[in-house]
């Protein structure tokens, strides 16, 4: 049916061109800074390239000339990993709960959605004020992590809904009929089936935390996470070092995305080998 369908309409070609332009719009600017981060030693912030060099990458790790890149990078990696783990477990647990009826489930759902759509500046201002009033010092791994979770958990829960909306309950019923305990059902039936989607939740948890700026601003305390550090540099750094930083950060994000997709593919294959297509979904 697919390839034999005769002549595509004009609108197909027009829309394909539109789509291509959209993709260029989406990726073009990033491609520009990736190229420019290899700018020669004498080069500036714009094209053309004045030779090629790795100078701007070395600047990043060099004499701390451009802020505390290494420490903030490390902090962001640790924080994103913690947020990722918490997001997966808390979302999975809540997602399982929402398959049953319980009191105030609607209220909690709306609170979760509200946590997503409430302007970030409120969260960060509120958390900052709250810690200040309670006489606690804001830290990236306490108040900062809380701020990130208000952003990642709603995504996690929404994805869990999407997963369980497509989940065929016959498999766990079969397991239960065969005498599996609730824990065994979760461990040996549900988790393997939704495994690939859980990796998706993890991907959201990590990247959303790793790149989070607005909610971190007043919540992380004195030690900056990477996006805050980068934002500070946008006003002080006027060399391609800024682009080198962009290239590096993007490379980390792409690596995380790549790893996630690879894990998803492997899990999908394994699942298919074990011969079930339950829980098949897009996410």
């Amino acid at each position: 049916m697919l390839k034999s369908t005769p002549n595509r309409s004009v609108s197909f070609y027009l829309m394909a061109i539109f789509f291509a332009i959209f993709i260029i719009f989406l990726y073009g600017p990033i491609a520009a800074i990736i190229v420019l981060s290899f700018q020669g030693p004498e080069g500036g912030l714009t094209f053309p390239l004045n030779g090629l060099s790795l100078k701007w990458f070395f600047e990043l790790f060099g004499e701390q000339r451009v802020g505390d890149f290494k420490a903030s990078f490390l902090r962001s990696m640790i924080l994103a990993s913690l947020v990722m783990i918490l997001t997966v477990f808390i979302s999975l647990s809540a997602g399982l709960a929402y398959r049953k009826k319980f009191q105030f489930s609607g209220t909690l759902f709306y609170i979760t959605v509200a946590s997503l759509i409430v302007p970030s500046i409120l969260i960060t201002l509120g958390i900052g004020l709250m810690f200040d009033r309670m006489g606690l010092e804001s830290k990236w791994y306490t108040s900062g992590m809380g701020a990130h979770l208000t952003w990642t958990l709603p995504f996690g829960l929404l994805i869990m809904f999407a997963i369980f909306n497509r989940f065929d309950k016959v498999y766990e019923e079969a397991a239960r009929d065969l005498g599996a305990s609730p824990w065994q059902v979760l461990r040996y039936v549900i988790t393997p089936i939704i495994g690939p989607s859980l990796v998706g939740v993890a991907l959201f948890g990590f990247t959303l935390s790793f790149d989070e700026f607005a909610r971190s601003l007043l919540a992380v305390g004195a030690q900056n996470t990477l996006p805050l550090e980068i934002f500070g540099m946008t006003t002080t750094v006027t060399t391609p070092t800024l682009y080198a930083l962009g290239t590096l950060t993007t490379a980390v994000s792409l690596a995380i995305i790549g790893i996630s997709f690879a894990v998803i593919v492997v899990l999908e294959k394994r699942r298919r080998r074990h011969g079930t297509d339950a829980g098949k979904g897009m996410i």
């Binding site: 477990f89 808390i90 979302s91 647990s93 809540a94 399982l96 709960a97 929402y98 049953k100 009826k101 319980f102 009191q103 489930s105 909690l108 609170i111 979760t112 509200a114 946590s115 409430v118 409120l122 969260i123 201002l125 509120g126 958390i127 004020l129 709250m130 009033r133 108040s143 809380g146 701020a147 979770l149 208000t150 958990l153 829960l157 609730p182």
Partner: peptide, 25 residues
């Protein structure tokens, strides 16, 4: 498993870092 127990972590985090701060504001 009790669903209320299962949503407890979510509720705790959102109460502490979302509802609490909004009330403070």
């Amino acid at each position: 498993m009790n669903p209320k127990l299962q949503v407890l972590p979510l509720l705790a985090i959102l109460s502490l870092f979302f509802i609490g701060p909004i009330i403070i504001i």
